Computed example of a mutant assay.
Amino acid sequence: MASLFPPNHGPLLPNFSSLLVKGPYPSACPLNLALSFPNPDRSIIILACSSRENSGNSLRASLQGLKLTGKISAQTERMKIFYPPTAAHMALLLSSLQVIDTDKPFPFAVHDTPTTNSAYSPHLLKPPGPLLVIIHELSAYFINSTQPSSTSSSYLSLLARALSVTSRLGASIAIFDAHVNHLKMPVHLDSNPHLERLQAVAPLLENYIELVLDFSDSNQPSRKNMFN
C-alpha cells in the first residue's frame, strides 16, 4: 500500500480516489507517495505549481536527496514532472491528459482527410493513462498573485477540472498544499478591494476530497475526513 513516508517509517494510506495533504508536511512526501504507489506498469504525473527555479523546496531537490537504489531508480522512470508556470498553463496541461484508443481511428475534423490525419493525436498521452496525478502546491498560483481577478472559485474550478480529468482516466489524484490552511480569497470582485469579502479556501476544498490529512498540529498527519 502507498505511504507518505519511506518504507517502514510511517503509516500506510488506505485506498483513495482523491487525497489532500495540507500543513507543513515533509518535502519528500509527494515523492514517497509516488514511489510507493502500486502498479508499476502505469505512469505517475506530478504537476508542480511552484517555481522550477526554487530548488530549495523543489521536487527535484527532494528526489536528489533520496537514496537512489536500483529499485528506486527503476521506479522513478515512471514519474513525469511538469512545471506549469500559471493557472492557465495548468488548466491547459490537465486538458491534455486524455487517453484514447490507438486501435481506433482518431475522429476526423471537417477539414481533415484520411491522408492528413494520423491514427491518434501526438499531443495526447497514449494508453495506458496515468495511475496517479499529484498536484504540488496549487495555492502558489494565488498567493501574492499578480492576477487581481482571482477569487475562491478560481482555485476550486481548477481543482474541479483536475478531479474531472482524473476520474475520466480512472486515476487517483493527490493534492499537496502546505499553505492552503492560510489561503483566503475574495468571494467576488469589487471595484473597491476593501469591500471584498474574503473566504477561507481550505474548508471548501475539503468538500471535494475523499481523504484529508493535516500536518498542522504535529509531525504526523491527522485524518480529517475519509469515505470508504
Rank of each mutant, 00 (worst) to 15 (best):
G10A: 09
S191E: 06
I175N: 08
L183K: 03
S150W: 07
V99I: 05
A171V: 00
E137Y: 13
L97P: 00
A202Q: 08
I175W: 14
F5Q: 08
V212A: 04
L92T: 10
L12P: 03
T86N: 13
S73M: 05
F227H: 14
P105F: 08
P130Y: 15
L31I: 10
P193C: 12
S51W: 12
L47Y: 00
N57I: 07
H9I: 11
S95T: 07
L59R: 08
M226R: 02
V133S: 09
L183D: 10
K80N: 13
L97C: 04
R197T: 02
L63P: 02
K184H: 09
K224C: 05
S51C: 05
P11V: 06
K126I: 01
S58F: 07
N144H: 10
S154R: 02
P221N: 00
V21T: 05
H194V: 03
N39L: 01
D177K: 00
Y83Q: 09
S95D: 11
I81F: 07
E196H: 05
S191R: 14
T76F: 01
P128S: 10
S145K: 07
S18T: 01
F176R: 01
V201Y: 04
R42H: 01
N32Y: 13
N8T: 13
P105W: 10
Y25I: 04
P122M: 15
S58N: 09
F215M: 07
I100Q: 10
L132Y: 09
E53R: 15
A160Y: 00
K80R: 12
S153C: 01
Q64T: 05
A34N: 02
L66A: 01
N144W: 13
I175V: 15
N15E: 11
E53M: 08
P38Y: 02
S157P: 12
P127W: 04
S157F: 04
L31T: 12
N8S: 10
P114Y: 00
L204R: 02
S152I: 04
S191N: 15
E210M: 00
M90S: 09
N54R: 07
P85M: 09
H182V: 13
P203Y: 06
F215E: 03
G70C: 07
G70F: 03
I46R: 06
I81T: 02
T151D: 03
L213S: 12
D103G: 09
I135W: 00
K224P: 12
D103Q: 07
L131D: 04
P122L: 01
P40M: 00
